[in-house]
Design a binder for these strands. Structure first.
Lengths: 186, 186
DNA sequence: TACGTTGTGGACCGATTGGTACAATGAAGC
DNA sequence: GCTTCATTGTACCAATCGGTCCACAACGTA
């Protein structure tokens, strides 16, 4: 029979979408096979640790994307407010204006949190910390920066839950607009 | 052997906690049996429609609690700001200051949303609508009321996600305090 | 061209799933 | 006290789960 020749790196974003759509438990190997086109021999060849390793790799991939596009720009852009604006743009793009949910958030609310405690914690802690740092560089005092960072990250997560529950991506868009204004005011 | 004699109404809150902790798919019948102490004969006697009916009953039960303690007080209390404050107190109590997550939010992010679309949508739509109504009675113009209601409900959901991810219920408490201030200002 | 290595797909495995069937037990009524 | 009915627990079912194993095919090298 004709065979797929695949590359591990190419599989990871597809895997991410399966976990995003279905959660950790809902993402069965048959759902993964259907979406990736790869049989178990290939999947276990790329990910000898099985499904848990697939999820770990997906979390690391997402963490890497956010590190490159959100956390490090927040940490390194001199102009704090510019950094924050870039964060909003990257986040809006990543979540496709509310059309896709946050895998880490999905994992946080389920049994997967117990399996991937450090990755889930680390992702959110890094985001809050990086954003607080940018706000401090924008002139906020540290306590206020921490409070606003928490508000923004929680606000984004909540908007994703509500958007999906109400089937209305406008909720996400309006929330980002409001959070932008919140941070612009001083 | 000794048998449990159970009442359907008593089982529902216990079922709710299983779905809250594990999500819809993660809540296997064996997990439900372990937590409720009931075998399948009893579970299927109470819930002939099986697991989907158990989840429906749980969602209806939660909806009923929120209707009684949150949505209707928001709709019926003449003093809009008093109603809002009561909502915050009830919500804080229900989520035990961030120690327990929102079943409906958990379902919203997973495959269960597709099974329980109307219940998930209805719960959040009712909450936003009731809160917006109270804010209008408190003197906000309707657009502002709607925006603030969305902000609060999304904020609560986001705080639950972040609290659980960071294993820090302080996030929830601080978020409620901030949302209270947001609504108190005019 | 032949042989060895690597990657693939899917059959098969034991375990668990949601659900069904039914025997046993307890309660209620006569 | 006996009979009937309701509730219970669990054996059993087919299906699916995550994972293992292996035959086969393709590719690379001598």
């Amino acid at each position: 029979m004709a065979r797929t020749l695949a590359d591990r790196q190419d599989v990871i974003p597809v895997l991410a979408e399966v976990f995003r759509d279905h959660g950790f438990e809902g993402a069965s190997l048959s759902a993964i096979t259907a979406r990736t086109g790869l049989g178990k021999g290939s999947l276990y060849n790329f990910f000898p640790g099985g499904k848990a390793e697939m999820a770990e790799v997906v979390l690391a991939h997402i963490d890497g994307w956010f590190r490159a596009h959100v956390f490090e720009p927040l940490e390194r852009t001199g102009d704090g407010l510019k950094a924050v604006e870039a964060m909003f743009q990257a986040t809006d793009a990543y979540f496709r204006s509310g059309q896709r949910v946050c895998v880490v958030g999905v994992f946080a609310l389920g049994d997967a949190r117990d399996l991937f405690t450090e990755q889930v914690h680390g992702y959110f802690a890094a985001w809050v910390r990086a954003l607080a740092g940018a706000l401090v560089r924008a002139g906020r005092d540290p306590d206020q920066a921490q409070t606003q960072a928490e508000e923004v990250v929680a606000g984004i997560q909540g908007a994703l839950v509500l958007s999906r529950a109400l089937n209305d991506t406008g909720v996400f868009t309006r929330t980002l607009a409001r959070l932008r204004r919140t941070l612009a005011d001083d």
